[in-house]
């Protein structure tokens, strides 16, 4: 037996011992707080197993290893099966069966609804999708795909035109001179407060230039040269500054996820924090 294999076995044995120890200690802790004996053993197993899986996933930060692989394959297998069950019970049994068959509704113990013949259209499209499994009827699945893509494009056209285009343009209709009473009052009442004239005016300029230069950056019918080139460069700067702010904001959100897992480990598993 080579050295690395021996070390792996020692680590494996250590983890098994730690797991069993943790299971026993957690069971005892749960028993002490009044949980029924069988329930405490079961709950202690699940808490210990969840902690093991959390640490197994964290171990990827060091390098790929068999424990990460185990957690990964378990996660993928369980989730794939889970989503298949969700798809069957929510879409097929939950939506389709009650609308087409009282007998099947009774069989699946879901309340039947008023018969709707239109529900056979998605059924036919779904069966056409499955024709991909047939060597000769594979082309039929393209019709279903075309239906999905076409209807989505059509529905989204209006939604995006409304929210991403018209509302964006109308929200950018802002005055570039806020509360303007002339150059004299502007300097005499100069203030750097957030609701002051200068900051409000500056904010409106940033919005206008940002939106306008962004539009130029995404204009594909003209080379980015001369004025267009300079404006598009301003556009990409605006985008990058926005990305920077968004990066920091999202990272803080991710830190809260980490805190959640650490709380599980130190509170639910180890009981070190209350």
């Amino acid at each position: 037996m080579d050295r690395s294999r021996r070390i792996s076995l020692i680590i494996f044995a250590g983890i098994i011992i730690l797991f069993i120890l943790s299971w026993i200690i957690k069971s005892t802790t749960l028993l002490n707080v009044g949980t029924e004996s069988l329930l405490s053993i079961r709950d202690a197993f699940f808490i210990t197993f969840a902690a093991f899986l959390t640490l197994a996933i964290f171990s990827f930060l060091y390098k790929d290893n068999p424990y990460y692989k185990f957690a990964e394959h378990l996660f993928v297998g369980v989730s794939a099966a889970y989503w298949m069950c969700v798809g069957f019970w929510s879409t097929f049994v939950g939506n389709f069966i009650p609308k087409v068959s009282t007998t099947l509704s009774n069989f699946f113990e879901v309340p039947p609804k008023e018969f709707d013949i239109f529900y056979f259209i998605p059924l036919i499209l779904g069966l056409m999708l499955l024709m991909r499994l047939s060597p000769k009827g594979g082309w039929l699945s393209r019709w279903s795909l075309a239906f999905i893509v076409g209807t989505t494009a059509g529905l989204n056209l209006i939604r995006y035109l409304r929210t991403d285009f018209i509302t964006q343009v109308s929200n950018t209709f802002i005055p570039l001179l806020v509360d303007w009473n002339g150059i004299g009052p502007f300097f005499s009442d100069f203030s750097l407060s957030a609701s002051g004239q200068f900051v409000m005016t500056l904010g409106n300029w940033v919005i206008f230039i940002g939106v306008f230069s962004g539009l130029i950056y995404f204009f594909f019918s003209k080379e980015h040269k001369g004025f267009f080139g300079h404006a598009s460069r301003v556009g990409i700067w605006v985008l990058m500054i926005t990305f920077g702010a968004s990066f920091g904001y999202t990272v803080m959100g991710r830190v809260s996820l980490l805190v959640g897992r650490l709380t599980f480990l130190f509170k639910d598993w180890l009981g070190l924090i209350s």
Binding site: F165, F173, W180, L215, F219, F220
Partner: peptide, 24 residues
């Protein structure tokens, strides 16, 4: 791109008109 051009023209007209209307 025609849509973007339309948006750019609308932005210039809209922002200039509201600025002049508000200020003067």
């Amino acid at each position: 791109d025609v849509g973007k051009l339309l948006a750019m023209i609308a932005l210039i007209i809209g922002v200039l008109s509201i600025t002049i209307a508000d200020a003067w």
